[in-house]
């Protein structure tokens, strides 16, 4: 039985990844009022492309960390282009269509991306190489691996960068203005389509990083990994209040903690009837409870129902 502190560490690591992915959902929702259900697949592509690059570099003798960074340097722009392309092809033509239409194209895009990845890399579970030292640090009896430290560090760094961009740059100001009132933003000279493209691109960059981090965490990547991860991150975004950046971060962390603690203690609580393989249930319990009792999320304002 792992200690409470160990569960909390695991929960924070998991939550940091959920938060990164949740930001992609919440940014797009904030600007377009649309849920980009293909985002999970972008995350998966980020993990797969990075892995492919690392495999290419395998014989070069470069340090693994350098290989990882080169992999990210390829997969981040690739995912940015992919995310922006998805918006262009699957959502922009439907901007004035009924709200169900982009949801359906999102599912179509997800399926296409999954099968493209199957075509290139197959259906197998790809073991992710041990990119970082594996000897864990000892923290008051709990273990924290260098990979876990890296996940927390990278996530925090990327999120701080995002907050800085949104609050202190011209693009960030244009994004906030567009989220608040696209019609008036246009009157200020903002090219709203450009802002939308950048929003998808930035969200996808965070997604690529998250995909790599989660693969490192579980030492595996495969073509369906984006589905459940996407759903959980979406849950995290709703939990925090969709459209709200801080909400996505808080929601992600909370969901990670709930999941880690829940799966850690579910066996005790149910007298061994359910085991930790029920971990995925917690995210969806959270989603249902939030949707019933506080659909606007923890930090969200009341969102008026859009037709």
């Amino acid at each position: 039985m792992e200690t409470l502190l160990q569960q909390i560490i695991n929960g924070i690591v998991l939550g940091a990844v959920y938060a990164l992915v949740a930001l992609g959902y919440t940014m797009v929702y904030g600007i377009l009022g649309l849920i980009n259900f293909a985002h999970g697949e972008v995350v998966m592509v980020g993990a797969m492309v990075t892995l492919a690059v690392i495999k290419l570099l395998a014989g070069t003798g470069l340090p693994l960390v350098v290989q990882l960074l080169i992999g990210l340097a390829v997969s981040i722009p690739a995912c940015m282009a992919l995310g922006a392309g998805i918006e262009r092809v699957a959502y922009r033509p439907l901007r004035n269509a009924p709200r169900l239409a982009p949801l359906i194209t999102a599912i179509g895009v997800s399926i296409i991306l999954q099968y493209l990845v199957v075509l290139v890399w197959g259906r197998t579970y790809h073991p992710y190489p041990e990119l970082l030292p594996t000897t864990p640090f000892d923290l008051a009896g709990a273990r924290i691996s260098p990979a876990q430290v890296a996940i927390i560090f990278f996530s925090a760094l990327v999120m701080a960068g995002l907050l800085w961009l949104v609050h202190h740059t011209r693009l960030g100001r244009a994004m906030r203005a567009t989220a608040e009132n696209p019609v008036v933003a246009r009157l200020m000279g903002v090219n709203v389509n450009h802002v939308v493209t950048m929003t998808f691109a930035i969200g996808s960059a965070l997604g690529a990083v998250a995909g790599v981090l989660v693969s490192i965490n579980y030492s595996v990547a495969h073509y369906q990994m984006g589905f459940i991860l996407g759903l959980k991150a979406f849950t995290a975004a709703v939990l925090g209040g969709i459209g709200n950046l801080g909400g996505a971060m808080v929601g992600g962390l909370l969901l990670g903690l709930i999941e880690a603690l829940g799966s850690g203690y579910v066996g005790d609580l149910t007298g061994g009837l359910f085991g930790s393989n029920y971990r995925d249930v917690f995210a969806f319990l959270v989603l249902i409870v939030v949707l019933i009792f506080r659909p606007s999320g923890l930090l969200g304002e009341r969102v008026a129902e859009r037709a």
Binding site: R173, R176, A177, E180, N181, V184, M188
Partner: peptide, 14 residues
């Protein structure tokens, strides 16, 4: 059409 969630200075910057 002011941006209610932005500061006065940020509105002017827009």
């Amino acid at each position: 059409g002011v941006f209610a969630r932005m500061s006065v200075a940020e509105n002017l910057a827009m």
